[in-house]
């Protein structure tokens, strides 16, 4: 099939950018979206032009490196799917496809479709962990965790940190990302001790990074490739308010 691409090209953090047109033919429906971009890049190289830069690594939907806006949707038209897992069978011959980076004040563009998402690392650094140094752990079966509790914690812990939730949010809020971590840790007995401190620190870091506020449109949940529920945001708000009230 043949596609008409309009791709965001940008030199560096400070320069402006623009949409550039490319025609790509010879696309097979079995290709992944990134393999289609590989094909285009291979042709650009042969012409001596700079390749379109995009982040990608595992190409199996788990590392969270890839992510772009495809026709205005984070990771493209499918639900529960990262860009690398999107295949060309989701497009038709002759389609025009707009490809842009994830846009948010807290995700500066480095070049083309590559963005800097280190703000997510900063949120985790603020308290997204259980303080258990190596060597301190008790025997693992001494901490009983009900099957459903472990599964619920897992659902939250499945976040891959790709940033689709931020990119799709009209406020560029990181509430889904942050709340998923808060939920993961507060659901488990090991993580409860630090929960009040954690939620306050992580939320204030989220604000400091320049992410917007959550206005509960739940758009994040729709685009999350791991289908993480926006109910975690409710839990985060509950934990936050509880922490504020009980704060000594």
């Amino acid at each position: 099939m043949k596609l008409y691409l309009k791709v965001w090209r940008q030199e560096n953090r400070t320069s402006g950018g623009s949409m550039i047109d490319y025609e790509v033919d010879g696309i097979s429906e079995h290709m992944s979206f990134l393999e289609m971009l590989d094909l285009l890049n291979e042709r650009l190289i042969l012409k001596g032009e700079r390749v379109i830069e995009f982040d990608h690594d595992c190409r199996e939907g788990i590392c969270g490196a890839c992510g772009m806006m495809i026709n205005g949707r984070a990771h493209g038209p499918l639900t529960g799917t990262t860009t690398c897992q999107l295949h060309m069978r989701s497009f038709k011959d002759g389609d025009t496809v707009y490809i842009e980076p994830f846009r948010a004040a807290a995700f500066p563009i480095l070049r083309d479709l590559k963005t800097d998402r280190s703000s997510f690392d900063h949120i985790i650094q603020a308290g997204g962990y259980i303080s258990a140094s190596t060597g301190q752990a008790p025997e693992s079966n001494s901490i009983l965790i009900a099957h459903d509790t472990a599964e619920a914690a897992f659902d939250a812990a499945a976040c891959i940190g790709c940033g689709a939730c931020v990119a799709t949010c009209k406020n560029s809020s990181a509430a889904l990302f942050t709340s998923a971590k808060i939920s993961h840790l507060v659901l488990l007995p090991q993580g409860k001790t630090e929960s009040a401190d954690r939620v306050i620190k992580m939320i204030s870091q989220m604000d400091a990074e320049g992410f917007g506020h959550c206005t509960n449109t739940e758009a994040c949940e729709v685009e999350c490739p791991q289908e993480i529920s926006s109910l975690h945001i409710g839990r985060m708000n509950y934990e936050y308010n509880k922490a504020l009230i009980l704060r000594k």
Partner: peptide
């Protein structure tokens, strides 16, 4: 033991 203490949600 270490992974459980860190909050790794192993199957139960």
């Amino acid at each position: 033991d270490q992974a459980v203490a860190q909050g790794v949600p192993f199957a139960r």
